Simulated assay, not measured.
Amino acid sequence: MQSIFTSSYLPPVQFMSHWVNTDEPIIEAHCNYAKQTYRNRCDILGANGPISLIVPVIKGRRPKVASKDVEIAYYERWQDLHWRSILSAYKSSPFFEYYMDDFAVFYEKQYKFLLDFNNELMQVILDALDINKDLKFTEKFDRVLADDILDYRESIHPKKDYSQLDLNFKPIKYRQVFSDRYEFIPNLSVIDLIFNKGPEAIDLLEDSILK
């Protein structure tokens, strides 16, 4: 079965759980860009609690811009901020040193388009999880999809409660870096899971979707 997802910056566990449990995941490239979504945001766990990392984008004059055309803004040093936050949050996690070099390069190179940045990061995530599924993209925007295609474009959203809207997703608890300070915090960026569980991360993703 096919499933369609929006592009996502270091996507949450919910996103990746559905991704690994679908036969043919596809990234939506032609829908209009929307603010306050996972397209340019991820959530990690720092020493003082959850942190939202947001990639700034250029706000053009056009009211609607296709996701594939959204450009990243560099008027502030957000790459340094993001990497310092990730380093501070996960430097003591069991598998951070193993994966860190693969992610660090994305905070040194400047990408023009958000979609390209997200997609190349996504490939690193898939490699870390040992997932052999090619990245595929929509060729046009279809508001209504065929009945045999699962649509996650709007349901996986930082402002929506997955526990109410996504009854198939049941996140599995794992030990997080600051578990001595906080109860388990579900559905953070998948890097939280990867840095803490390493090769076991894929098993948790597969088991987080009710069959």
Rank of each mutant, 00 (worst) to 15 (best):
D148C: 09
S179E: 14
I194C: 02
S163G: 08
L150T: 14
V144K: 13
D151Y: 01
K170R: 15
L145M: 06
Q176C: 04
I185M: 07
S179W: 11
D151A: 01
K170Q: 15
K160W: 11
K159D: 14
K159A: 15
Y182W: 10
F178A: 05
D151S: 02
R175E: 15
Y162S: 03
R175F: 11
Y174W: 12
Q176M: 04
F195I: 00
L188Y: 04
A146K: 15
F184C: 05
I185C: 04
S163D: 07
Y182C: 05
D148Y: 11
Y152N: 03
D151F: 00
S163Q: 12
I185H: 09
I156G: 02
R143G: 14
I191D: 06
S179C: 13
L167E: 15
V177D: 01
R175H: 14
K173N: 14
V144S: 15
F169R: 01
D148V: 08
R153H: 00
L145W: 00
I194H: 04
L167D: 11
S163M: 07
K159H: 13
K173Q: 15
Q176I: 06
P158M: 07
H157E: 02
Y182L: 07
S179Q: 13
H157Q: 03
R143D: 15
K197T: 11
D148Q: 15
I191W: 08
I156N: 01
D151R: 02
L167N: 15
I172H: 10
V177L: 04
Q164N: 09
K197M: 12
Y152V: 01
Y182H: 08
Q164T: 09
N168T: 02
Y182T: 07
L165E: 11
V190G: 05
F195Y: 06
E154I: 01
K173A: 11
Y162V: 01
S179P: 08
S179T: 10
D161T: 03
K197N: 08
S189K: 03
Q164M: 09
L193I: 04
R181C: 06
Y152H: 05
V177H: 01
S189Q: 06
G198K: 07
K197D: 06
N196L: 00
K197C: 12
F195L: 03
D166S: 13
Y152L: 00
D147Y: 10
N196R: 02
D192E: 12
K160G: 11
S155Y: 03
K160A: 14
D180W: 11
L167S: 15
Q164K: 15
D161R: 06
K173M: 14
L167I: 14
H157W: 02
R181N: 10
Y162T: 00
L150K: 14
L193V: 04
L165F: 13
D148L: 10
S155R: 02
H157N: 06
K173G: 08
I194M: 05
K160C: 09
L165Q: 11
Q176T: 05
F178D: 07
D166G: 14
S163K: 07
R143N: 15
R143W: 12
K173W: 08
Y152T: 00
V177Q: 04
L145E: 09
K197P: 05
I185W: 04
D142A: 10
D166F: 13
D166W: 10
